[in-house]
């Protein structure tokens, strides 16, 4: 039982790390640009497809993964210049309209280019084994690597945000948007950078997850909503908040699905427990989010609104 718990905890952490990679850029877009971007999930999906395509042509995992980054960066820049830039000072509703449209466009393009059937990406040889965990349990090396890479990215982001000039602007922007606007022309470059980096991270997440999950046109949808949950629990605009919230959401979601029914069985008869468990498990993270917002209407690390 304990081993199972440990295993699921690791799975949850790995899922959380993935959520963090997608959420990190989006929380800044929400917080600093006050921009509602529904199309961030499709960038994650496009990352998966670009990875699959690169693997198909080069056959080399590491080369493909490296190539995903510039492709996503360029895509992010292109979207910023063509669409997002024109919507920064428009209402949230116009932003919803445009980015909802973008979801449809990008998802359909992917279906046209690669079809609707799920694609799979082979795992690199070097990471395909598993290592011994406590006792007889083993854990896949690849998943450990995902956690490690995610932590490294988190550390790098922390460094950029805490120690560099760009980071200073980001922090100022998350705390007080008017202040960033007052900084003048720099702002356009900052927005572009945040946007492109966010697209790159989301695409990267889609790429590294591709050997574990299959790549399919719906993958962006499911992660997008959980990303929103992460951002809101962490506090809009806070990368640190996104990190902790992502781990929390990843772990709660994974453990809930596994242990919810088991716990409920202690309370009621098995059939009812199974049904209740199936009902409650997917709702858990949303209940968590509603509860957090009930106690802290601006999330765990969000700036509070003055009364």
């Amino acid at each position: 039982m304990f081993n199972l718990f440990l295993l699921q905890l690791l799975n949850g952490a790995q899922f959380g790390i993935l959520l963090f990679l997608v959420a990190a850029g989006l929380t800044l877009v929400f917080g600093i640009m006050d921009f509602i971007n529904l199309a961030h999930g499709v960038l994650y999906m496009v990352g998966g497809y670009v990875m699959a395509m690169m693997m198909g042509t080069t056959g080399n995992f590491w080369l493909s993964l490296t190539l995903v980054l510039p492709v996503m960066l360029v895509l992010g820049l292109a979207l910023e210049v063509l669409v997002f830039r024109r919507l920064y000072d428009r209402s949230h509703l116009d932003q919803v309209l445009a980015t909802f449209g973008l979801i449809l466009v990008l998802s359909e393009l992917v279906k046209i280019l690669w079809g609707s059937a799920p694609l799979s990406v082979p795992m690199p040889e070097a990471l395909s084994g598993s290592i011994a965990l406590a006792g007889p349990m083993r854990y896949p090396v690849y998943r450990i690597a995902v956690i490690g890479v995610g932590l490294a990215v988190a550390l790098a982001l922390w460094f950029v945000i805490a120690r560099t000039r760009v980071g200073m602007l980001l922090r100022a922007g998350a705390a007080n948007r008017a202040m960033v606007s007052a900084l003048g022309t720099d702002i356009n470059r900052l927005f572009m950078l945040v946007f492109a980096a966010g697209a790159m991270l989301a695409g990267f997440a889609g790429a590294i997850v591709s050997p574990i999950l299959s790549v399919d046109p719906g993958m962006g949808d499911s992660i997008l909503i959980l990303t929103f949950v992460v951002i809101v629990i962490g506090g809009v605009g806070s990368v640190k908040g996104a990190f902790f919230a992502a781990l929390l959401v990843g772990i709660v979601d994974t453990l809930g699905r596994m242990f919810g029914p088991i716990l409920l069985k202690a309370l009621m008869d098995p059939a009812a427990a199974a049904q209740a468990g199936r009902t409650i498990a997917p709702m858990l993270v949303y209940i968590l989010m509603a509860a957090v917002l009930f106690w802290r209407p601006t999330g765990l690390f969000g700036r509070s609104v003055a009364r």
């Binding site: 949950v229 949303y286 009930f294």
Partner: peptide, 22 residues
């Protein structure tokens, strides 16, 4: 309605998802 702006959008989304998964 305790929340505002983006938070309101997101919490209504969360409740919608709860109903959906139910």
């Amino acid at each position: 309605l305790r929340t505002r702006g983006v938070y309101f959008i997101m919490i209504t989304l969360a409740f919608g998802q709860m109903a959906y998964f139910f």
